[in-house]
Amino acid sequence: MIAPDWFREDRLPHIYCTGCGNGTIINCTLAAVEEMGWKRDETVFVSGIGCSSRAPGYILTDSLHTTHGRALAFATGVKMARPDLHVVVFTGDGDLAAIGGNHFIHACRRNVDMTVICMNNHIYGMTGGQGSPTTPPGAISSTTPYGASEPAFDLAELAVAAGANYVARWTSYHVKELTKAVAAGMQTPGLSFIEARTQCPTNYGRHNKLRSVSAMIEHLRSHAILVAKRDRLVAEGKPIPEGAFTVGELVRRNRPAMGVQR
């Protein structure tokens, strides 16, 4: 249970659509913050632009709602200048992987001690549902009216390859696992990247035969396979089911990190 004193009550109601998964991810993150015992005046939330990036505005801490794609660069400045502050970044798939892609890989390479949570809804939600770098091939959006024709980024694998010390992926269905993963990321020195796949019923689901929120969440649940299961299938030479994506912890390691408080 999240203590209400972490929310800016005077900012309610929030802008999220009915059935949006972002609130779930904010709740999981704040539950992890509570588990960590972080204090409000020692914690800073940073974000870029998009639905995900409005999250810091609802949390009662110092917060930096920045420009599109640049959240990680701003957060790097905050953390390097004040390593004693806890820095958490909320971002989305467009913010992180399209306009902010270069900052994403360099933040992982530097391994700056912060927790980055990407609300990946596979769409530019705030601007009305355009295709993003994580829109699955074939999916319909306002800029992919005949089905997305570009391959999609696997954000978690990208973070692993670029050097983040902790990487995990869950969905808005996996509330307990997601909370644990965020907390594990917060405990790991260096950059922690948690991809949280989530539903955008307004701008993704209704164009892609997922008309209800429950249908979207069921889609996320049924296409998620544990990393261990994927590994077992690969070892046994069996095929990975069509459209499946891994969930679980992808890496936890101890590469040299920057901005770790001594």
Binding site: A73, G77, K79, R82
Partner: peptide
Amino acid sequence: GVFISMEDELASIAAVIGAAWTGARA
């Protein structure tokens, strides 16, 4: 102090603004 070579100038000014909000002269 902290010197950091950022990945481009968009990131450079972003990091400077982030640091400035911690009260550092940046």
